[in-house]
Amino acid sequence: MADETVFFLLRHGETALTAERRFSGSGGADPALSERGRGQAGQVAGAAVLEAVEAVVSSPLARCLETARPVADRLGLPVTVADGLRETAFGAWEGRTFAEVRERFPAELDAWFAGPAAAPPGGESFDDVTSRVAAARDELLAAHRGRTVLLVSHVTPIKTLVRLALGAPHEAVFRMDLAPASLSAVAHYPDGNASVRFLNATAHLA
């Protein structure tokens, strides 16, 4: 459809916390990309599928901005920031591994898995994240109607955008895998429908 709006969804490259599989949200440290992550950002900038991109929008966190800049530079585009694309604030879980959280916060972790209204201590629930991500999506759709846009974000916001496009239940976020610097794509149509074009593509990193 001529008026479709396509969002390419790019997860940021690796950080030291990514490599150690630690909770890394928007409520704690703001780590930069690791050396490997910077290499991934350079690789994704060369992905042929991104040649159609007409605008680049990033989470405000450093790892996303670092990932966005090589693509934007290659395309000759500025990077704009959308706060709604930031990662979940994980509160007391920030910087901890899953095993550490399981040991120290077992009841809270069980509740977090059980339903989207539960939040890590001092952090955001999935319901909170869904509300702001959906609002950011709607703002971006209004601003970029009919264009192809690269959104550089994090695991939870990207999974949420895909889940909403599919009309899938909350549990779907636990059934998707997103590698660092992976690409996904969602098309939105004027009648309000959406379709997922692809998920977790990593061929550009080979």
Rank of each mutant, 00 (worst) to 15 (best):
V152Q: 08
W112H: 06
T160C: 11
A89M: 12
S125I: 05
D83T: 08
A142D: 15
G84M: 14
R102K: 14
W93S: 05
S58F: 10
K159H: 06
R145E: 11
A143Q: 15
A142R: 15
V155C: 03
A119V: 07
V53R: 03
P157G: 02
E171M: 12
A142V: 12
E51V: 03
L151P: 02
V79W: 15
L164V: 05
V129Q: 13
V133K: 01
F126E: 09
F105K: 00
E66C: 01
V57M: 08
D83M: 01
T88P: 02
G167V: 12
P120T: 10
A143N: 07
A82C: 15
A135G: 06
E87V: 09
A107C: 04
R147G: 09
L65R: 14
L77M: 01
A52Q: 13
K159F: 02
A165P: 10
S153D: 11
G91L: 05
A68S: 05
L164P: 05
W93M: 08
V79K: 14
A143E: 14
T88M: 15
W112N: 03
T67G: 01
E124L: 04
H144G: 06
L85E: 15
W93P: 06
D73N: 10
G123S: 04
P60T: 07
S59Y: 00
F113L: 10
F113Y: 15
A165D: 08
T160F: 03
A89I: 08
L61W: 04
L140M: 09
P106Y: 00
H144N: 13
L65A: 09
L140V: 11
E51K: 11
T148L: 05
V129N: 12
D127F: 05
